[in-house]
Design a protein around this nucleic acid. Structure first.
Lengths: 173, 173
DNA sequence: CGGGTTGTTCAATCTTTTTTGAACAGCCCG
DNA sequence: CGGGCTGTTCAAAAAAGATTGAACAACCCG
């Protein structure tokens, strides 16, 4: 019944549309996440949560952003995985409400953990395999060159690995 | 005529195909640039240059990677813009040859300059405009909330701006 | 149970981005 | 000039990626 009132309100009063300010904030985050290689819907969801004073449920996102239930569900999952969104403790309702994590440290940490680390790690594996290939290279001059280049990549990866924690620390303030 | 010989050679001897090791390195970079949100062809081009002892010309890339002249041209332009590739001084030939920049510092610097900075800057502009919208918000409680959130974004952006130079320095070794 | 509500999954569809290739601009040299 | 290279541009095609929506699982409560 409560839910129905909410729905009717939204339909009739146009509360489902975003205000100008909300639109701007959402767009800001859409741009933001694009830089990070994440899909638009994720930026929209996070943006709306970010500018909402109250936690929102999946249906709110669907209604106000005009996206599908599927997108909202997947977007929320991804955001939870990144630690960018968490479930909010809201009254006795059955549905779950979400609120944004707003500490830069946490956001950056989640992104590094989910998006950067895995790539660094799989990269290390690939480079390891490459080492084999280089060792069996016949031509000594070529082998020396390859060794140098490969060593350089390894060095890059080590540097990157060392930099990430520093990054997190610096952004933690 | 020379060019024709080259082509015949490539067709007949298969010199145009990548060896196993080259293929692996190219794939490694394809993955790498994808993380950065750059297209596959750019990873291929940089990867092949990286593992080649000699500088390569546009036609070499087309031939060996099996990509179109258009892709090679655009990819090289982007890589030049990033400072990831430079023209190599090669004998008296008319065509221009390219070699990779292999210093992490330079690569990261170029990426920050071309991809990150512009987004940070345009973000700042957008947030500035948002400030206006917040100041005219009628409801004081809402206005206070918005001010807090907006301040948080501004703080994020300042932190990010401060971190970039540190990043570059750390990766410079 | 059974109907209502909340949320998930995934094949099909739509959108966006990348690649292609043909036309062309510029240059060099006979 | 004119023909042969080298490289660029950009509209069209292809590929990659995101979104939709309908089917379905899981729960809750009378």
């Amino acid at each position: 019944m409560l839910a129905m009132n909410r729905q009717l309100d939204n339909e009739s009063k146009g509360a489902s549309e975003l205000g100008a300010l909300e639109r701007q904030v959402v767009d800001f985050f859409v741009d933001g996440v694009r830089v990070l290689g994440l899909p638009r819907s994720i930026g929209e969801i996070y943006g709306l949560l970010f500018i909402s004073q109250e936690p929102l449920a999946l249906d709110d996102l669907v209604l106000r952003l005009g996206i599908s239930k599927g997108s909202a569900s997947q977007g929320l999952r991804a955001l939870k995985g990144l630690g960018a969104v968490r479930e909010a403790a809201v009254g006795e309702e059955r549905r779950t409400y979400f609120e944004p994590a707003v500490e830069l440290k946490r956001l950056v940490g989640g992104f590094i953990r989910e998006q950067i680390r895995p790539h660094l790690d799989s990269g290390k594996v690939k480079i390891g395999r490459l080492g084999e290939a280089v060792r069996v290279e016949g031509n000594p001059e070529r082998r020396e060159f390859l060794t140098e280049r490969l060593g350089r990549i390894e060095h890059w990866m080590r540097s990157s690995g060392r930099v990430l924690p520093v990054l997190q620390k610096l952004l933690g303030e």
